[in-house]
Design a protein around this nucleic acid. Structure first.
Length: 103
DNA sequence: GCTGTGACGCCAT
DNA sequence: AATGGCGCCACAG
């Protein structure tokens, strides 16, 4: 049985519109687990390959990519393609963060 | 059912 | 601004 938290997280991630991003902590908070940022990361890691999640729209609270190596490059270029602007590998959250409708 | 782990976040230096 | 340490919790082994 998969936790409701996990399902909520997946649903929330799927709702992120193009050109916007959300942070791990924000998603976890909305899903009902204020301290579940790490679970969000874990969910992405395990599900993004199977599910069709816009995983590249999820970044950390500092507005930076949490992945190193090639995956990080891929994520960055995907975001750039959505007109999201990087300034020294950092995104302006005040401008690009998506505020979830409910809660 | 106990233990380690992680694409994190926050506060104290 | 940069680092380090601790907390928190679902999931795999």
């Amino acid at each position: 049985m998969i936790e409701k938290f996990t399902l909520d997280v997946i649903h929330i991630i799927k709702s992120i519109p193009k050109g916007k991003v959300m942070t791990y902590g924000q998603i976890a908070f909305i899903a009902g687990n204020p301290f579940g940022a790490r679970q969000v990361a874990r969910i992405l890691h395990s599900m993004s390959q199977k599910e069709q999640l816009p995983w590249h729209r999820v970044i950390n609270a500092q507005g930076k990519i949490s992945l190193g190596g090639e995956m990080g490059i891929i994520q960055k270029s995907r975001l750039v393609d959505e007109d999201i602007i990087f300034k020294n590998d950092r995104i302006n959250l005040r401008k690009f963060q998506y505020h979830y409708p409910n809660e």
